[in-house]
């Protein structure tokens, strides 16, 4: 599934919910299926700054695709980072770098996109795209 297809799927999922509580319950549920980061990566190096809760994100490259794993000490943050992982994980670095993030607005989480929000969604996206940039550069070097 492409990034756009996953994003559309997520938008459809969220469109089933009329009120905020169902929406947040869905985010909480999503947090429970988060691909968990290995304990050894839960260090400052993998910690994403700008969050009121702590979030760690790791990335590795497998057969040209980026695999993300994460964890957080807050449940909603787990759900939000898993939302991003569903979209970004198993995609080529280039796709991740160019990904259009407007679906976050469509599912009614726009408030989390503001840079003043302390959940750090913006920082998470930035960090995940940064991983993709690094992998893209490495892949180019290997090809050269």
């Amino acid at each position: 599934m492409s990034i756009q297809e996953t994003a559309t799927k997520i938008v459809n999922e969220f469109s089933l919910f009329d009120d905020w509580m169902d929406k947040y319950n869905h985010i909480i549920e999503m947090g429970k299926t988060l691909p968990m980061i290995d304990e050894k990566y839960k260090t400052d190096q993998y910690l994403i700054s700008g969050c009121q809760s702590r979030v760690w994100v790791s990335a590795e490259l497998a057969e040209g695709k980026v695999i993300f794993k994460a964890d957080s000490d807050a449940v909603i943050t787990k759900g939000i980072v898993n939302l991003l992982i569903r979209v970004f994980s198993n995609q080529a670095p280039e796709e991740i770098i160019d990904a259009d993030m407007s679906f976050i607005d469509e599912i009614g989480l726009k408030e989390h996109l503001s840079p003043t929000r302390s959940n750090g969604l913006v920082s998470m996206i930035k960090q995940m795209k940064l991983y993709a940039v690094v992998f893209k550069t490495k892949m180019k070097e290997q090809q050269a």
Partner: peptide, 19 residues
């Protein structure tokens, strides 16, 4: 986590601080 609690409390129109 205070952040989780605060996010939900906010939805009730109640302004509290967390952190």
């Amino acid at each position: 986590h205070p952040y989780d609690a605060g996010t939900i409390i906010d939805k009730f129109g109640i302004a509290v601080r967390t952190g």
